[in-house]
């Protein structure tokens, strides 16, 4: 090959790489814009309306009676928590679906989220715990269920993993029902927070804890997510290209922790993890994007929280109930698109 040939061929490669990358940049920019808009709506509008200058004045420390307190202690932590758990559920779900190469294999379908809920309900109703220990129980529950699914269901890549997860979900759901039926009405109120996700109890302490978890998990994710480029080609080719067998498993563990901490912070916000990945992919020309899925997660959580909080009559509907209601039609859409077939991840 002569030098001019080489220059020409390299130009072909550059050109071919450009279009998908431009679309990806556009998708991320659009989703970021949407997420910012949703955040602004959640913070500024609702039962109390703020102007943008007021918002920044309060943020800078100016005291406006009632308005300051409401913004700083309720609306702002609530919206920030919504952003964080949206990121966790969206990214965690997309990693599950991509690693297991199946859009049905999201953590809320295969029981990881239920593991967190069941452990928290158990801690509340049987052990009588409240507060932080319950959150820790939720994290441990998610990890324990994930490990159990892995040990019974076999290596990453098989359909067994999903079947085991679905079976485990049913078992955990009946355990929760049993515990609830024996509990006092007061305890049930506390336990219910762990069954339908809600941003109702958001405070800065929760936000801080979740930020700390993300500071550890996101860099791990950034390094580990690269193995998806080879694991998507099948286990054989992944190995042939130098990906270690445990790489996808470590990536899954990061995803389990993302989802577990999010559940510990807000309860299980149903189906956000399930919906975010395929939505982001549909926008991105069918290509998997974890960052895109995280942003879709943010938009979903913030939008559902606003609608549930302010737009449905006089009652406040927890965000998890609304996203759960959206999950079923979404599943039908997924099936109708035929996206559950051969290599959907």
């Amino acid at each position: 090959m002569t030098v001019t040939d080489l220059v020409r061929d390299v130009a072909v490669v550059r050109r071919a790489r450009r279009a998908p990358r431009r679309r990806y940049a556009l998708v991320l920019a659009g989703l970021t814009g949407l997420a910012i808009a949703a955040f602004a709506v959640n913070v500024l509008l609702g039962d109390y309306t703020y102007t943008v200058p007021d918002f920044f004045r309060i943020l800078a420390g100016e005291e406006i009676p009632v308005a300051s307190y409401l913004l700083m202690e309720s609306k702002l932590p609530r919206a920030v928590l919504g952003v964080l758990v949206g990121l966790c559920f969206g990214a965690g779900g997309a990693i599950f679906q991509a690693t297991l190469r199946n859009p049905l294999a999201s953590p809320d379908v295969v029981g990881v989220t239920w593991g967190a809920s069941a452990a928290a309900v158990f801690a509340v109703l049987v052990l009588g715990l409240r507060g932080t220990p319950v959150s820790l129980a939720a994290v441990l529950g998610a990890v324990a269920v994930a490990l159990l699914i892995r040990s019974v269901g076999g290596a990453v890549g098989g359909h067994r993993l999903i079947l085991v997860g679905v079976a485990l979900t049913a078992a955990l759901a009946s355990l929760v029902q049993y515990l609830l039926s024996r509990a006092s009405i007061w305890d049930v109120q506390v336990a219910l927070q762990w069954l339908a996700g809600s941003l109702h109890a958001a405070d800065w302490a929760t936000v801080r804890a979740l930020v700390l978890a993300l500071l550890v998990l996101v860099p791990l994710l950034a390094v580990r997510a690269r193995s998806l480029r080879t694991t998507q080609l099948g286990d054989d080719l992944a190995t042939a290209l130098g990906t270690r067998r445990r790489d996808p498993e470590l990536l899954l563990l990061v995803a389990v922790l993302l989802v577990a901490f999010a559940v510990a912070a807000s309860g299980p916000i149903a189906f956000v993890a399930f919906m975010a990945g395929p939505t982001a992919r549909a926008l991105n020309g069918g290509r998997t994007t974890i960052v895109g899925a995280a942003l879709v997660g943010v938009v979903l959580v913030l939008a559902a929280d606003f609608v549930g909080h302010y737009l449905i009559g006089d009652i406040t509907v927890p965000v998890g109930v609304l996203t759960g209601a959206g999950g079923a039609p979404f599943l039908l859409w997924l099936l109708a698109r035929g996206a559950t077939g051969r290599n959907p991840a």
């Binding site: 190469r101 080609l233 080719l237 042939a240 992919r281 290599n343």
Partner: peptide, 13 residues
């Protein structure tokens, strides 16, 4: 190695 059944990811160029 080129295996017998490599998987083509969706939307890949």
């Amino acid at each position: 190695l080129l295996p017998q059944h490599p998987i083509t990811p969706d939307g890949v160029t």
